[in-house]
Design a protein around this nucleic acid. Structure first.
Lengths: 203, 203
DNA sequence: CGGCATCTTTACCGCTCGGTAAAGTTAGCA
DNA sequence: TGCTAACTTTACCGAGCGGTAAAGATGCCG
């Protein structure tokens, strides 16, 4: 697993190229992004792409890793808020911002990337769905701790609450791709947060 | 606009074929569904498909019409409920059912069909987004009437409320494609409906 | 400066895509 | 029964797909 020392140095910055590929996948999805589109945006030819990142699917996986590390950092940060309500508020409001960045395509790469694919690429769809559910499980854990500390009422279903919030973020992402404004998405986030006022009263 | 009387009769049922095409588009999306996949599922050859339905895009438009008429009937029915709360409850619960039908692909054709496409088919994405927002406008109108009749508090923002509910339905659809169960989606619907308890208290 | 490992470029592979021309088949009407 | 209009079948089109072989440029090291 040792990479040989490079003799003839690479003529492009892999990080810049990866970010360019990310935007193309984000806008057109895994199958909608052709290698011609991708390499044109990356400023390199197909064999260079192949040597640096592997197959199209391997490139996509690296893009997803970069996306999770950079563009999804707000979600990890939200979970560190002191109270469950603040966790939810940060998640929903920061998601409204994330899916309407003027310097990025609208929506969320995890959904745009491959919510549906042809029969040959169903593994892409499954991989993205699994990783979204993994994030939801982390959020449920956060709410479980909130129940333990008395921050949320004992009867609360932490998994259901996490699922509801993730559903809202996904709906926000879909809405963003339809051109709905950041302000309107934040209004819906505020509306969604009203459920916290009734949590203690519900079963 | 008069159709010539048919001499050599068609050897397949166009409605059955259209339903078969609907399932393929629903599962694989507009671009992920190849003409080969589509015609195989429809039980006909490409020229027959072409003669009966036109181009792939025209076939897709006819599929969407059938989908709106049949599979989205629950949404129109929900809006006829007597109170705003019952409208929302019917919409969210029936949507949870609609996106998890065992005899249909998971999720919603409007999202699966083309939430992202290659550069050549962006019109499909735009068409679907526009029709989703049209449904949302109808829902906002319904809430506007509810405010007029005193069913909803005067300070309520009908467009924001409609947007929130549509966001939830879209998130449910995405969740359904990840394999989340109907019962879990209905639990999140019940959670979302809690916002109605706080509507009078919010601005 | 020569040798060579590396990267980049050009050109191309087999395959599938959406779409169609033309021949073959079917059925109603005279 | 034979003509004719419609539909179906077969075979194919140019274009673009993901991926790659082979030749040409580049730069470090001895």
């Amino acid at each position: 697993m040792h990479v040989a020392p490079e003799r003839g140095r690479r003529a492009f910055d892999p990080l810049v190229a990866l970010n360019a590929a990310k935007e193309v996948f984000w806008r057109h999805g895994y199958e909608g992004a052709s290698l011609t589109d991708l390499t044109a945006a990356m400023g390199i030819n197909k064999p260079s792409m192949y040597a640096a990142f592997g197959t199209k699917q391997e490139l996509f996986e690296k893009v997803i890793q970069a996306y999770a590390a950079d563009d999804m950092a707000y979600a990890r940060a939200a979970m560190e808020q002191p109270t469950a309500y603040e966790v939810a508020a940060a998640l929903l409001h920061d998601n409204a911002i994330a899916v309407t960045r003027p310097d990025c395509p609208p929506g969320c790469l995890s959904i745009q990337g491959g919510i549906s694919t042809g029969p040959a690429n169903s593994s892409v769809t499954e991989f993205l769905a699994t990783s979204r559910l993994a994030g939801e499980a982390l959020l449920a854990d956060r709410f479980r701790r909130a129940i333990d500390t008395g921050d949320l009422p004992p009867g609360t279903d932490p998994a259901a609450l996490a699922r509801f919030l993730m559903i809202v973020t996904e709906g926000q992402a879909i809405h963003a791709t339809a051109g709905v404004s950041r302000a309107d998405l934040q209004a819906s986030a505020s509306l969604a947060l009203l459920v916290f006022r009734s949590l203690s009263v519900s079963s």
